[in-house]
Amino acid sequence: KEQQNAFYEILHLPNLTEEQRNGFIQSLKDDPSVSKEILAEAKKLNDAQA
């Protein structure tokens, strides 16, 4: 469930490039146990690119 939530949120971050988004999603698939950390990174990058 946590992985699904992170997946959904990353898909809807407006400021990520397609490449960045795909990278985060691939990381989620590779290691779902760190989905919280991956989501935090994605949000940080999204904010930095706002």
Rank of each mutant, 00 (worst) to 15 (best):
K1W: 12
E2W: 04
E2A: 02
Q3L: 07
Q3C: 02
Q4K: 06
Q4P: 04
Q4Y: 04
Q4S: 11
N5H: 12
A6V: 09
F7E: 10
F7T: 09
Y8E: 14
Y8V: 13
Y8K: 15
Y8S: 04
E9P: 03
I10F: 03
I10Y: 01
I10M: 06
L11K: 07
L11R: 07
L11F: 07
H12R: 14
L13D: 01
L13G: 00
L13H: 08
L13V: 01
P14H: 06
P14K: 06
N15L: 07
L16T: 00
L16Y: 00
L16S: 00
E18T: 08
E19T: 11
Q20T: 02
Q20G: 00
R21Y: 05
N22E: 11
N22M: 10
G23V: 13
G23T: 15
G23W: 10
G23A: 12
F24T: 00
F24H: 01
F24E: 00
I25A: 06
I25R: 04
Q26N: 08
Q26E: 11
Q26P: 00
Q26A: 12
S27Y: 08
L28T: 03
K29Y: 12
K29M: 12
D31F: 10
D31K: 14
P32D: 09
P32F: 09
P32Q: 05
P32K: 07
P32N: 03
S33R: 13
V34D: 12
V34C: 05
V34L: 10
S35M: 14
S35I: 15
K36P: 11
K36S: 05
E37I: 09
E37K: 09
I38N: 02
I38Q: 04
I38T: 13
L39K: 03
L39N: 02
L39V: 11
L39S: 05
L39Y: 08
L39E: 06
A40Q: 14
A40M: 08
E41P: 00
E41F: 08
K43R: 02
K43H: 14
K43W: 07
K44Q: 10
K44S: 06
K44A: 05
K44M: 15
K44Y: 10
L45A: 07
N46S: 12
N46C: 02
D47F: 10
D47I: 12
A48G: 12
A48Y: 13
A48M: 13
